[in-house]
């Protein structure tokens, strides 16, 4: 049963990713990416990270991608992929290199390939519930947490300052 869901979500996410890369209009790419994120949220859920899955949908698909769409609309709604290109040789090399990359990545972890990894269900400690994550976040990882909040503040300020019209 799990395998069905896995392959379903996997197929959707890969297809959506390909669509992102292939689409001419930027808006369509954004929409395809949202779809991809949704499928990945499902995968996350299947991996026992409920919290992260929820965050994926809320933050990534819900906020970041919306921001992307806003900017596309703001700048050039009809934005298209530009034709031709003086760097055709890059386009030529991109795919073979990427394929090599996949192959190497897979080969780099031989002991995981084809093996039945890990054992069954997690101990309560490792379950990705909100309570567990919260506990870890506010005890072991409280410093990065606080620092991240400052980071977000900086990002907000930066975005405002940068995008301001200079009048």
């Amino acid at each position: 049963m799990e395998y069905v869901f896995f392959y379903l979500f996997a197929a959707v996410s890969v297809a959506a990713a390909v669509l992102v890369v292939v689409q001419k209009k930027a808006v369509y790419s954004a929409l395809a990416l949202i779809l991809c994120f949704g499928a990945m949220a499902g995968l996350f859920f299947q991996l026992g990270s409920q919290f992260i899955a929820a965050i994926q949908v809320i933050v990534y698909a819900g906020a970041i991608m919306v921001l992307f769409v806003f900017v596309i609309m703001l700048v050039d709604p009809e934005a298209e992929s530009y034709p031709g290109g003086s760097l055709r040789h890059i386009s030529f090399w991109a795919i073979p290199l990427a394929v090599m990359l996949v192959f190497l990545l897979i080969q780099a972890f031989p002991d995981f390939l084809g093996s039945v990894a890990g054992t069954r269900a997690s101990s309560p400690e490792a379950e990705g519930s909100v309570e567990n994550i919260a506990r870890a976040l506010f005890t072991h990882y409280v410093v990065p947490f606080e620092v991240t909040s400052i980071l977000i503040l900086v990002a907000i300020l930066g975005a405002i300052v940068l995008a301001r019209r200079s009048d």
Binding site: I90, W93, A94, L97, A98, M100, L101, L104, Q107, A108
Partner: peptide
């Protein structure tokens, strides 16, 4: 930029080849 990115990718691939 894309050219730079390609060089980076090439470098990464080479490192992986070596590792492999």
């Amino acid at each position: 930029t894309r050219s730079y990115a390609t060089w980076v990718l090439l470098g990464a691939v080479l490192i992986f080849i070596y590792y492999y």
